[in-house]
C-alpha cells in the first residue's frame, strides 16, 4: 500500500490538535497578564512575559527543521505539548509577584516553545496525512481550533484564577494531559473523543471538589 493511499486524517481532527497547541496564547496573553497587573506587577514586566511567549511562536521556523529531520511528528507533538503542559502548570504555581518575573518569563517562553513545536508538528501532520482535496477544510478547522484555544484558554483561566486560585494548575494540567491521552497522528476518528475526555475529567474534579 502506498503512502498516499494510507492518508486518512479527518480534517476536523485539526480543530482539537491546534486547540491544544495554541492554549498558552490565551492563558499567558489574557489571563496571566490581567492577573499580574492585579497583583501589583508593573505593565512593563507583564508585557515582557507576554513578549517572551510571543517570541517563542515567532521563532517557530527555528524549531521546524528539527521536526522534519528526526523522530516522528506524533512524538514531537506529544513532546511539545507535554513540555507546554509542564511549564504552564509551573507558571501557574509560581507566586504572582514582581520577584518572580524572571522565572515567569522563562517559563512563559518554555511553555510557548513547547506549543510552537507541537504546532509545527500539527502542520506537518496536515501536509502528510490529509488528502489534497481536504487540505482547505483542514486549514479551516485548524484556524478555528486556535481561535477557540485563545478565547477559552484566556477567559477560562482568568475565571479560574479569580474564583478558584488553588485549582487552576490542576485543571490546566488535566486539560492538556487529556488532549495528550489521544493519539495525535489522527490516523483515525479517535481524536474526536478528546472533548468528552476533558469534560469527564473536569466533571470528576468538580465532584471531588
Amino acid at each position: 500500500m502506498s503512502r498516499l493511499s494510507r492518508r486518512s486524517c479527518p480534517p476536523g481532527a485539526f480543530f482539537f490538535l491546534h486547540l491544544c497547541a495554541a492554549w498558552p496564547v490565551g492563558v499567558i496573553g489574557l489571563a496571566l497578564g490581567s492577573r499580574l497587573i492585579k497583583e501589583g506587577v508593573s505593565v512593563q514586566q507583564s508585557a515582557a512575559i507576554i513578549a517572551a511567549s510571543t517570541l517563542a511562536f515567532t521563532l517557530e521556523f527555528l524549531w521546524a527543521p528539527m521536526v522534519d529531520s528526526c523522530l516522528t511528528r506524533r512524538r514531537w507533538f506529544i513532546g511539545g505539548a507535554g513540555a507546554m503542559c509542564a511549564c504552564l502548570a509551573a507558571l501557574l504555581l509560581v507566586p504572582l509577584d514582581p520577584k518572580s518575573v524572571p522565572l515567569m518569563t522563562a517559563l512563559a517562553f518554555a511553555s510557548s516553545s513547547g506549543a510552537a513545536v507541537a504546532a509545527v508538528a500539527v502542520k506537518g501532520i496536515m501536509a502528510y496525512d490529509v488528502p489534497v482535496a481536504k487540505l482547505a477544510s483542514a486549514s479551516g478547522f485548524y484556524t478555528a481550533g486556535g481561535t477557540l484555544a485563545k478565547a477559552l484558554g484566556g477567559a477560562g483561566t482568568l475565571w479560574l484564577l479569580t474564583h478558584d486560585p488553588g485549582r487552576i494548575s490542576a485543571v490546566s494540567l488535566s486539560l492538556t494531559t487529556a488532549a495528550l491521552a489521544r493519539r495525535p497522528s489522527a490516523s483515525s476518528r479517535s481524536s474526536f473523543a478528546m472533548p468528552s475526555q476533558i469534560y469527564g475529567r473536569l466533571s470528576a474534579r468538580a465532584k471531588a471538589g
Binding site: 524549531w63 521546524a64 521536526v67 522534519d68 509545527v120 508538528a121 506537518g124 501536509a127 482547505a136
Partner: peptide, 15 residues
Amino acid sequence: MIAIGQGAAATKAAS
C-alpha cells in the same frame, strides 16, 4: 499547505 507539498513540509509551513 497545498503549495508546499510534502518535502520538509513542517519547515516550509512554519517559515
